[in-house]
């Protein structure tokens, strides 16, 4: 049996999680203080995911860039590709918080949404 120690990143509590593994199988998870921690530990072992937060270029708005994020976490290994995808687009006002900037990015089933309003200059 192998023990893997993780720090939960779901919330700032940063629970120290211990995952006991038998081969590729999870046998036990301890140390979480909420259900999200349990889910995080499972995901982190099987298919780690991250929320991507970044900016995209904008034109004719009050700011030259708009902040965006993936609405849900996406597979960790796709983060690099996703930022490259997002570097290719340019937004124009009006943009409202929550507007979808890219639908279903890299076929993850997850949308990228704006996290800031963009007004015309």
């Amino acid at each position: 049996m192998v023990k893997r120690e993780l720090t939960c990143i779901v919330c700032p509590n940063g629970c120290r999680l211990v995952v006991e593994m038998e081969g590729k199988e999870i046998v036990n998870i301890t140390g979480y203080e909420c259900k999200r921690g349990l889910k995080y530990a499972e995901d982190e072992i099987i298919a780690p995911k991250r929320t991507l937060t970044t900016i995209v270029k904008a034109e004719m708005g009050h700011l030259p860039v708009v902040s965006v994020r993936t609405k849900e976490p996406i597979p960790k290994e796709l983060i690099g590709k996703a930022v490259l995808e997002l570097s290719k687009i340019t937004l124009k006002p009006p943009i409202n918080v929550g507007d979808i900037v890219v639908k279903n990015i890299l076929d993850t089933g997850v949308d990228v949404i704006a996290t800031r309003n963009l007004y015309s200059k």
Binding site: V56, K57, L84
Partner: peptide, 13 residues
């Protein structure tokens, strides 16, 4: 400018 480094590395790719 923001994204310039990324776009450059994208072009390299």
């Amino acid at each position: 400018k923001a994204k310039e480094y990324l776009i450059n590395s994208y072009k390299e790719l």
